[in-house]
């Protein structure tokens, strides 16, 4: 027979542990909330239309993020243009053609490992391969190529996930009608996987927009007095601008950094919202 004190003790321990576990979920979320509030409060002092539409300046109150914002959008568009077609094609190969072959297995292990390579190492790859070897210089193009390689594994994994969710019965039905593999993929599999692919790729792109380290290595410029005007143009991006401001000795620049972070997070939020909207829209059309 268990005595009463033991039973109560056990129940208290049970609840105590449960609360500790819950706290492990809540505390990180509270930190996240603190972070956002802190940045928002700091940034609100500087955030204005002028801040978004001005060029960097040595005077903190006059400095803005325009070239960095435009640069970010430019680089990201290029990244998506390069990474999405290649990534989706690779995912199609791995999921539809290469199943279980040893080549596909090697590629798959390789992709999983690439996803774990530090982003700063991609920067070194970009510096050696695109900036130097391919002679692109410290340009928008070199940055786009570098980030494209960086998000490629994520795009492939997300697209694979979407392709995997297409039921095999539909592929069989299509083959049963005498369709070839590619006809089946193009007309049955890809349209069904599209919402998932879209969501996954937009999310990976929104991730790339916050990348700082690889672009520092590739050679983004912190002090841009003009807008990037071509693939070979030098460039800045939002995170670089923010980083530059955090390294300045004057505390006013820290406020600029916070305001820049608010802009950066807003752009990411917009992209994420777009991803969710797109997914919902397509999912409705799927009935």
């Amino acid at each position: 027979m268990m005595n009463k004190d033991q039973r109560i003790g056990g129940r208290i321990a049970e609840w105590g542990f449960r609360i500790v576990c819950l706290a492990a979920v809540i505390i990180p979320l509270l930190v996240l909330a603190t972070l956002i509030v802190d940045v928002a409060i700091d940034g609100a002092q500087r955030l204005s239309w002028e801040f978004i539409s001005s060029y960097p300046s040595r005077i903190p109150e006059q400095a803005g993020v325009l070239p960095a914002l435009v640069g970010s959008l430019f680089v990201i568009a290029l990244t998506g243009l390069l990474a999405i077609p290649i990534g989706v094609a690779a995912a199609v190969y791995l999921n539809e053609y290469g199943k279980n072959s040893w080549v596909a297995n090697i590629i798959e292990i390789n992709i999983a490992n690439l996803a774990g390579v530090p982003s700063v190492v991609y920067g070194l790859l970009g510096l050696g391969l695109f900036v130097r070897f391919a002679g692109m210089g410290r340009s928008v193009l070199a940055a786009g190529c570098t980030l494209a390689l960086l998000i490629l594994p994520i795009v492939i994994m997300a697209s694979r996930e979407a392709l995997r969710s297409v039921p095999g019965s539909l592929r069989e039905a299509s083959y049963g009608l005498g369709a070839t593999k590619w006809e089946t993929i193009r007309q049955v599999v890809l349209p069904m996987a599209l919402p998932g692919i879209l969501t996954g790729t937009i999310l990976s792109i929104s991730r790339a927009i916050g990348e700082t380290a690889p672009l520092i290595v590739v050679g983004a410029v912190a002090y841009m007095t003009f807008l990037p005007d071509g693939l070979d143009s030098s460039f800045s991006v939002l995170p670089i601008q923010i980083y530059d401001w955090t390294t300045r000795p004057q505390p006013e620049f820290l406020i600029n950094a916070a305001a820049g972070i608010v802009v950066l997070l807003s752009v990411m939020l917009l992209l994420n919202a777009a991803a969710i909207l797109l997914r919902n829209k397509y999912q409705k059309r799927m009935y």
Binding site: L170, E172, A173, Y175, G176, L177, G178, R285, Y287
Partner: peptide
Amino acid sequence: PVLLRRHIGMVFQKPAPFPT
């Protein structure tokens, strides 16, 4: 085999109309 399957059609266990 692809062309053959246009001669010999198939209906599956679970109805599988293309959802979209």
